[in-house]
Design a binder for these strands. Sequence first.
DNA 1: GATGAATGAGATTTCATTCAT
DNA 2: TATGAATGAAATCTCATTCAT
Lengths: 209, 209, 209, 209
Amino acid sequence: MAPKVTLEHRENTRDRILDAAETLFQRRGYHETSMDEIVRKSGMSKGAIYGYFESKEDLFRSLHDRSYVQAFESASALLTAGGSSRSKLERLVDIYFLSKDNELSRERCRMSLEFSVESLRMQPLHRQQEWRDKQLHGLIKTMIEEGVRDAEFRKDLDADSTASLLIATIDGLILRWATTDSKIDWKSARDAMVSLVLHGIAASPSRSG
Amino acid sequence: MAPKVTLEHRENTRDRILDAAETLFQRRGYHETSMDEIVRKSGMSKGAIYGYFESKEDLFRSLHDRSYVQAFESASALLTAGGSSRSKLERLVDIYFLSKDNELSRERCRMSLEFSVESLRMQPLHRQQEWRDKQLHGLIKTMIEEGVRDAEFRKDLDADSTASLLIATIDGLILRWATTDSKIDWKSARDAMVSLVLHGIAASPSRSG
Amino acid sequence: MAPKVTLEHRENTRDRILDAAETLFQRRGYHETSMDEIVRKSGMSKGAIYGYFESKEDLFRSLHDRSYVQAFESASALLTAGGSSRSKLERLVDIYFLSKDNELSRERCRMSLEFSVESLRMQPLHRQQEWRDKQLHGLIKTMIEEGVRDAEFRKDLDADSTASLLIATIDGLILRWATTDSKIDWKSARDAMVSLVLHGIAASPSRSG
Amino acid sequence: MAPKVTLEHRENTRDRILDAAETLFQRRGYHETSMDEIVRKSGMSKGAIYGYFESKEDLFRSLHDRSYVQAFESASALLTAGGSSRSKLERLVDIYFLSKDNELSRERCRMSLEFSVESLRMQPLHRQQEWRDKQLHGLIKTMIEEGVRDAEFRKDLDADSTASLLIATIDGLILRWATTDSKIDWKSARDAMVSLVLHGIAASPSRSG
DNA sequence: GATGAATGAGATTTCATTCAT
DNA sequence: TATGAATGAAATCTCATTCAT
């Protein structure tokens, strides 16, 4: 009856279910994972799971929520910490790819990608997702503006479109990474990307639009 | 009963099925589309469809094949045509986004994305997909090498990793595009991207990395 | 902790649960109403409800009990009160249709009907129900016998079968009433019924069997 | 491929499913009967049943349809056949209670009653049901008008409300019949009812309104 | 070859009831 | 005694695929 105990208990149980679902969705994909498997993995009963989540889709959604909040907090912390804009850029890229235990997580990227696809058919979520995208966009835009202010980045950069491109580029790397089986030397790929983003590929530093 | 007629007929029928599937997969997604719907849309019988395709997955695969071949041919043609490397870059971006009728097709991007996700669980296809990625990679690598040779691009570019990044960036834009509902001015987004890729974001043209 | 207070409390709680169930069963039907909804509506806990009622079915049964007792008391009172047999007949019909607040209650009729259906599969209850039917039958039989004695009704009436028919006719009206959505002028329907029951439809007053 | 064979086949299969469902719904009730039981009883596969009926509810609806059409045709035939109005009245009552094999079918009445209850929550069907009630009403109204014209029935009868009452009375008998377990001598109950309906219960033939 | 009725395993979800706290 | 989290059997329905005609 003590509410604190009950609440804590609910949190734990919820997390237990989310953990099981995360493992399975990452390993086998959303559609290939059945609720029965989540039941088995989590050790909970079917009814219990439906007491915490309205549906399989809601479970997926909630799982994404948790990941997003974790990732956003990490990104937020790193970007507000000190350091050069360049180093922030590097760390930003890392956040996307490193899981809790600082391991590159291809599975995680795959799930994230699958979520992007599925979320297209989840109307109410879609709104939320767009809001979050804006949040992230704002964060990175600020980082770029700081870089411009500190003269690390070009004066004539449009912070808005640059932020969009940056995000897209990182997303693209995730997609590649998630999609490929061949070993990639992650560090050098990241460095190459940062270098490209910093200096571009053009021969002359002439400014064209 | 001339075999040629029959072959032509088979081709047509096959395309009819693929067209129906394409429309439905794009509109409702792969998992949400049932074979019954494809039967209805295509006007073919169930047996007929299974005469042309081994399974629903095979149908999806074949559909992707057709799209890929079309896109690759377009890319190939554009890149071997004349023009500056910069203009090639611009056109390359366009190819990804423009459907047959030169319309931006968000639906198409979505299906392509869904295919990327699904293909992860389709082992035999996966190989093929990697081979194709290499093909595309080679095409773009060649384009970059030409750009370097013609002194349009920086001398110290690593063609390999630059090609990867380029592809990733474009993929990322697709993902954004497919995932977002808000109107995007496509031309200016593309120009911003090309500009970024060409000149980078760094303030000074000093070469680091 | 005086036992009387506790008993009173139990009665109140019991009624609170019955009220909640009544509202829901009438609004959504027995099968469509879940125990969770009753929990929510009544503001009681699950355990509490199961402390008062053995099962959902028992709850339904008890609810019917309460309604029946109320209705039977009303019928009993009206019939033993003075007045012509004809006026008793009229009032009898009304009792069936008027809820506590003297409003015609279609919902109530519907629930009563649903109960009749469900009770068929509730063996122990069935007995009770038959006993009650007999009780009501007796009440009405007595009323008819009085009517005959007072020369308001035909001498050759068989009180038994006439009572049955009378009940059936009223039940039939309930069924119609419960089942129809169209507005019915209740008073004139009742008067027509009483008139029909009194005088029959035959042209001549000749007595045939 | 011959359509006639296929159509006939479909009809037969459909009827086979309906027969199985009818038996079970009558024996155990709608809610207590599971689709699995219907599968077992009909000898069809689950998929097959869902190929013929959209849902369990649709199956119930269709079953009622079939019964209704049969009953209405019988009623229609009997009423348009010759004979006195009184004999028509008697036969009308019988139709309600006698199944195909001319057996009194309590089970059938129960199912019909349960359908009345369930249909309240089936909106689209509800409309149809009301239309049917009107159809039946019209049929009986005509019968009464003929009785009046032939001077078998009282001149001052209102055909409309009398038809309503008549139907209600029969429905009430069904309800009683369906609801009771005790043996009822059907013939004498019917005769008593017809007699009551013809001559009323009032002592004097004085016409009151 | 073509057809589409039939299959049936398996998916998600519900909900009356129990029982540890 | 009261609570409400947990249970888990059972329900409805889906759908890729097969195969007799």
